[in-house]
Simulated assay, not measured.
Amino acid sequence: MRFMVMVKATGYFEAGIRAGKEHSAAKDAFLHDLQDAGVFQSAEELLPSSSGLRVVFPPGGGAPAMQAGPFLPEQEWIADYTVIDVDTEDEALKWVLRMPLPPGQGEHVIEVRRLASGTACALDARAQTMKADLQDQLSLLHP
């Protein structure tokens, strides 16, 4: 089962205040642990909502409205996410409880949600590129 682990942004994150080298090292170590366990799928950090754009589709149709960030805090910003592939929700929660969080930046919220099966390509971009390169090389050998 694949789960998306979403780290909600704080006011510190939105203001561009980073947690520092110790937190970055702890986060890198955590991601390495996920890789070693064979459950890591992907991870990315987002930019603050001030760099974002939101498209709002009105109920009943009509032209969508564009909204530039920053967005209101009650709309729950997301700072980063990690996708893991584990056997159970309990296993996903065990990984979340190990996730390092920056100290001294208030309350942190992490949301864990199971991804719908079959809606995403299982191959990452590097694997797709390697597959295409291999097919190109094979076509040279057997025209």
Rank of each mutant, 00 (worst) to 15 (best):
residue 89 E to C: 02
residue 139 S to H: 15
residue 9 A to K: 01
residue 114 R to T: 01
residue 135 Q to S: 00
residue 73 P to F: 09
residue 124 D to Q: 09
residue 107 E to M: 01
residue 23 H to L: 05
residue 79 A to I: 12
residue 107 E to G: 00
residue 45 E to P: 04
residue 100 P to A: 03
residue 118 G to R: 02
residue 140 L to V: 05
residue 14 E to I: 02
residue 90 D to K: 11
residue 132 A to C: 04
residue 29 A to H: 14
residue 94 K to D: 15
residue 92 A to L: 09
residue 128 Q to S: 07
residue 118 G to E: 08
residue 140 L to C: 04
residue 134 L to P: 00
residue 106 G to V: 11
residue 98 R to A: 08
residue 31 L to W: 08
residue 133 D to G: 02
residue 46 L to E: 07
residue 41 Q to I: 15
residue 89 E to Q: 05
residue 44 E to V: 00
residue 91 E to F: 04
residue 99 M to G: 03
residue 1 M to C: 04
residue 9 A to W: 00
residue 139 S to D: 15
residue 33 D to E: 15
residue 97 L to Y: 12
residue 66 M to Q: 08
residue 139 S to F: 15
residue 139 S to C: 10
residue 142 H to W: 14
residue 75 Q to V: 09
residue 103 P to H: 07
residue 104 G to N: 09
residue 41 Q to M: 11
residue 47 L to P: 01
residue 81 Y to Q: 01
residue 39 V to W: 13
residue 110 I to R: 05
residue 10 T to R: 07
residue 15 A to N: 02
residue 47 L to G: 05
residue 143 P to L: 02
residue 143 P to Y: 04
residue 69 G to Q: 14
residue 56 V to Q: 10
residue 55 V to H: 03
residue 111 E to P: 03
residue 119 T to Y: 04
residue 32 H to P: 01
residue 26 A to V: 12
residue 128 Q to R: 12
residue 67 Q to I: 07
residue 74 E to D: 13
residue 140 L to K: 13
residue 92 A to G: 14
residue 30 F to M: 01
residue 35 Q to V: 08
residue 141 L to C: 10
residue 109 V to R: 13
residue 38 G to T: 05
residue 25 A to L: 08
residue 20 G to L: 11
residue 15 A to D: 03
residue 109 V to L: 09
residue 126 R to H: 06
residue 64 P to G: 04
residue 53 L to N: 09
residue 59 P to S: 00
residue 108 H to S: 03
residue 108 H to N: 03
residue 16 G to Y: 12
residue 72 L to V: 13
residue 104 G to K: 02
